[in-house]
């Protein structure tokens, strides 16, 4: 059973998740079919900047986050930015989109100059997120849990971060049990995606290096 306090926490996180999204003027540009390789690169850069800003605005609403040491706040955001962005992108890709949009987006990524070696695990991850059919509450909580990982580099007070992450994990566990009663392993599968994100993070560092050379 989810307590009243936990329900309030879920509402807070989900409202923040819905409120902070990539601006429409940027997402509209993504769906334009005519673009050059350079325009594509510039747009993906603009998207990345916007995604980071959205991530920070979402994170500010996580109860207790702004009470953490300021440099620990920076360390958590820096450390989780790539993973949080992949998770959010995967959730966007897994939603039902108007006809043709998925293909345009996928094509844009494939023609961006990013090597196939990286694109394959990325789209595999998007597919594995899609297969979970998460509800928005689960998506928002999983994002918050990703950001509140105490083991990010340079975090000084790991216990303070753990104290924020644990209630989120507890709420998510209960939500999964209630939403997916016939899938007792569902929560474990969600946590498994966090491990996949760590691998993607590692790929991302290598991908950036090769993209720069290209």
């Amino acid at each position: 059973e989810i307590s009243k306090e936990q329900q309030a926490l879920i509402k807070l996180i989900v409202d923040a998740y819905k409120r902070h999204q990539i601006p429409q003027d940027i997402t509209k540009k993504l769906l334009q079919e005519q673009y050059s390789a350079e325009e594509n690169f510039l747009l993906l850069t603009e998207m990345a900047t916007s995604q980071v800003q959205v991530l920070v605005e979402f994170t500010k609403n996580i109860p207790g986050f702004l009470s953490l040491d300021h440099e620990d706040q920076i360390a958590l955001l820096k450390g989780s930015a790539v993973e949080a962005m992949f998770l959010r992108s995967a959730q966007v890709f897994s939603r039902k989109m108007p006809s043709g949009h998925t293909e345009v987006l996928e094509e844009r990524v494939r023609k961006s100059g990013i090597s196939e070696e990286f694109i394959t695990p990325m789209f595999n991850f998007y597919k594995s997120i899609g297969e979970l059919h998460m509800i928005q509450e689960e998506q928002a909580l999983l994002s918050a849990i990703t950001i509140l990982s105490p083991d990010r580099p340079y975090v000084k007070d790991q216990q303070a971060v753990e104290r924020l992450q644990e209630p989120m994990l507890d709420v998510l566990r209960k939500l999964c049990a209630l939403q997916h009663p016939l899938e007792p392993q569902y929560f474990a599968r969600l946590l498994g995606r966090l491990t996949e994100l760590r691998t993607l993070n590692h790929y991302h560092t290598e991908m950036l290096a090769s993209w720069r050379v290209n």
Binding site: V52, Q53, V54, V56, E57, L77, A81, L208
Partner: peptide, 21 residues
């Protein structure tokens, strides 16, 4: 580390300011 400086700048600015501004 150099590539992360851009990321850190964006994060610091966003943490201090308001996105709408």
């Amino acid at each position: 580390p150099a590539s992360n400086l851009g990321l850190e700048d964006i994060i610091r600015k966003a943490l201090m300011g308001n996105l709408e501004e």
